[in-house]
Write a protein that binds this DNA or RNA. Structure first.
Lengths: 235, 235
DNA sequence: TTATGCTTTATTGGATCCAATATACAATAT
DNA sequence: ATATTGTATATTGGATCCAATAAAGCATAA
C-alpha cells in the first residue's frame, strides 16, 4: 500500500533517508556554538573532546569540521587542529557591505510578491524582538524578522548565501546587542523597513535595509575597535 | 637557525602543516571533475570507486564529499550516496542574477584601485581566450580574465563567494561555449569591459559586466531548454 | 501476469586501531 | 643563562573492520 507508481520513491513509515546523521547533528551543534559565541574566536576545537561530548567516535566529528571549514567558520591546519576563524575589522566591514548589497536587492524583489502572511509573520517577529528580555534570543528573532521579509523573493540561493554570510558575523552582532543600547535603533529601523514593505514600496525598503545593515556594521566596528569593549567582552 | 623570536612559528625545511592532505587532493579533483562536466549531473559518486582511483581508504573520500556538499556541488542522501547536483533553469537564472549583482559591484570598486599590472594580466588572458583553440580551456581563461579585473577591489570574501557561484554553473557555460558560437559575443563583450576599465570608468565597466553576465545567462537558459541541444550534449 | 514477502548483495555510516606529526618537557652542552 | 638535542605525550590523518540500510533478485501466491 505504500507503493507508488508515479516514479517517486515509496515512503516508508520510518523514513531513515531523511533523518539526520551523527555528523549532521554535530555540525549543527558546533555551528550553533560558534555563531552564538560559546566557542570564542581563536579557540581550537579538539576532535576527541567533541566526540566525548556526543559519545561517538572522531569520524563524524571530523566530517562536521570539514563542513564548517568549507563554510569558513573554522580554519584547519594539518596535524594541528581547527580553530574558530577570527575576523579582522576589514573583513567584518566587507561582509556587512556584502550583506547590504544582497539583502537590499532581495527585499526589493520580495516586496512586489509579498504575501500578507509573510508580512504578518515579520510583524510578529519584530514585536517579539521588541519584547524579548533575554539577549541570547535577540539574534534569532532578528534573523527571522528579516527572513520573513525576504522569503517571497523566491530566491533560495540568495538566501542561502546571505545566511552563511550572517553566520560569520552573528557572534559579533550578538555581543554588540548585549553590551550596548543598539537594540533601540534596530527597533526603529525595523519598523521603518516593515512599513515600507507594508506600503508596497520596494525601493524604499531596499534603501532602508541597506542603511540598516551598513549602519550596524559601522557601529559594530567602532564597538570592536574600542579596547574597553574588548575587555568587557572577556568577562 | 630556523628559530624565530617574533612570535611566528618556525619554518622548517619541510613544512608539512601547509601541504595538502589526501582529503584536500580528492576534494580538488572531484570539484574539478564536476565543474568540467566530467561527472554529469545526476550521476552518483561511489565512495569506493573514488577511493580505488586514489589508492586510499574511503575516509578521506567521505570528508571530501562532505565539503563538496557544503558548497552545494553535490547533494547527499543518507545511506544511498551523493549525486552531482542538477540545476533547474530557474536556479540557473537565479545564480546568473546573483553573479551579475556581485560582479558588477566588485568591478566598480576595483576600477579606481586598478593597478596597471592587473590590467595587463587581464589583457593577456583576454587574448589567450581569443586565440585558444581547445574549448576545454576556455572556461579557465574566461575566469582568469574576470578575476584579474576584480582582484584590486580588495574584497576577498566577495571573490570567494563569486567563485563558488561560478563553480555551480561553470559546466553549463562550458557546454554552451563548446557547442554554440557564443564565444564570439563573449570576445567583443570582454573587450568592451576591458576598455572601460582601462579608461577608468567604473560605472561603465559595472554596467557592461552586468549585461555580459545576464545575457550569457539568458542565452544559456535558452540553449538548455532546447531539446536538440540536450541531445547533442549527451553524445 | 502481478503483487507480496524473503533473501542476498552493494553501499553507506560509524568504531576501533595504527601511523605520522606537532608540542611540551627534560637533559645536555656552550 | 641560553640554546640545542633528545624523549615523551597529545593530537591529527588514515586504514581496517563492523553494523545499519537500501536496492536487487527470487520465490511464492493470488
Amino acid at each position: 500500500m505504500n507503493q507508488s507508481r508515479n516514479g517517486t520513491a515509496p515512503l516508508k513509515a520510518t523514513d531513515l533517508s531523511r533523518t539526520a546523521s551523527t555528523s549532521d547533528i554535530i555540525f549543527d551543534a558546533l555551528r550553533d556554538a560558534i555563531i552564538r559565541g560559546e566557542i570564542g574566536e581563536g579557540e581550537t576545537i579538539r576532535q576527541e573532546s567533541i566526540a566525548r561530548m556526543f559519545n561517538v567516535s572522531r569520524i563524524p566529528v571530523r566530517e562536521a569540521l570539514k563542513r564548517l571549514e568549507a563554510q569558513g567558520l573554522v580554519t584547519s591546519v594539518r596535524f594541528k587542529g581547527v580553530v574558530v576563524s577570527a575576523l579582522s575589522p576589514a573583513e567584518i566591514r566587507e561582509i556587512f557591505a556584502f550583506r547590504a548589497l544582497l539583502e537590499s536587492d532581495v527585499i526589493a524583489g520580495a516586496v512586489p510578491a509579498m504575501r500578507p502572511q509573510s508580512l504578518q509573520e515579520a510583524r510578529q517577529y519584530m514585536e517579539a524582538f521588541d519584547r524579548e528580555e533575554d539577549p541570547a534570543k535577540w539574534g534569532e528573532l532578528n534573523w527571522h524578522f528579516h527572513m520573513a521579509l525576504y522569503r517571497d523573493a523566491g530566491r533560495p540561493y540568495f538566501l542561502e548565501v546571505i545566511r552563511t554570510a550572517n553566520d560569520r558575523v552573528e557572534r559579533y552582532v550578538r555581543a554588540q546587542l548585549e553590551l550596548t543600547g543598539s537594540r533601540g535603533r534596530a527597533r526603529t529601523e525595523h519598523e521603518a523597513i516593515f512599513n515600507a514593505c507594508a506600503k508596497g514600496d520596494g525601493e524604499q525598503a531596499a534603501a532602508l535595509t541597506r542603511a540598516h545593515i551598513l549602519d550596524a556594521g559601522e557601529s559594530l566596528i567602532e564597538f570592536l575597535t574600542n579596547d574597553d569593549n574588548a575587555r568587557k567582552r572577556d568577562e
